[in-house]
């Protein structure tokens, strides 16, 4: 599965965000987009997901892809309970599969919370519902824009592990935006390090699961040195 940028230009409020962007991503696996705030990671992922067109150039994506998107906020609809929120993605495609919804809820540990409304859920539970909503469609590619940023450390680590297991289990591709080095190491197979806005050639860091995390973290820190304030 290949996603590529070809001569992509994008402006934002009369400022150049990307100019002559040319590189590609190869799935399956988890690809982290790491960089400081404002470097354009979220915009990159929106270009990849087709949510935003470039001003010029081409963003190549596999055709007919089943995709899911997980935002930083869960964006659950307050007037729908957990089951109905997770079912939303099926409903919008005129699909009817309550068993798939129940399974997705069970997979994220929310089977007992299906009748609760979002205002009755904790932050972690809302994010898990958001994950279930994305997973229920069985997406081939998942776009995650800092999905766990607002969560506590324990919940974050549990969900990172869950997400990684889900992606690797069925050879899916996941683009994961983060500005946490340790999170990138935890989740990803490959980390694209953007040091500044409009980085044309990000440094690519291959995560080695056989190496200890402290050594990898030190190497990654070296790569991104100077780019985070």
């Amino acid at each position: 599965m290949i996603f590529s940028f070809q001569e992509v230009h994008l402006r934002f409020k009369n400022k150049i965000l990307f100019e002559n962007l040319n590189f590609q991503f190869k799935g399956p696996g988890v690809i982290a987009l790491l960089g400081p705030s404002g470097c354009g990671k979220s915009t990159l992922i929106r270009l990849l997901a087709g949510l935003q067109p470039p001003d010029s150039g081409l963003v190549q994506r596999p055709i007919g892809l089943k995709q899911g998107f997980i935002f930083q906020e869960s964006h659950l609809l307050n007037w729908r309970n957990t089951f109905e929120n997770v079912n939303l993605s099926l409903e919008l495609k005129n699909l009817f599969n309550p068993e798939a919804v129940q399974k997705a809820l069970k997979d994220v540990g929310l089977e007992d919370s299906s009748s609760l409304f979002p205002q009755e859920l904790s932050g972690g539970m809302k994010m898990r519902a958001s994950l279930a909503r994305a997973f229920v469609l069985n997406p081939e590619v998942l776009f995650c824009d800092e999905p766990f940023a607002a969560l506590d450390e324990v919940t974050r680590e549990n969900l990172q592990k869950y997400l990684r297991d889900y992606i690797l289990k069925s050879s899916r591709t996941c683009f994961f935006v983060t500005h946490h080095l340790s999170e990138a190491l935890s989740v990803a197979d490959e980390i694209y390090c953007f040091k500044k806005r409009g980085e044309l050639d990000p440094e690519i860091f291959q995560v080695d699961r056989n190496q200890d995390s402290a050594t990898q973290l030190a190497s990654l820190k070296t790569k991104v040195r100077g780019s985070f304030l």
Binding site: A49, L51, Q67, F69, F71, L88, S89, L92, K93
Partner: peptide
């Protein structure tokens, strides 16, 4: 965007 992403 969520709705548009799911082809609503």
């Amino acid at each position: 965007e969520l709705f548009q992403l799911y082809g609503a």
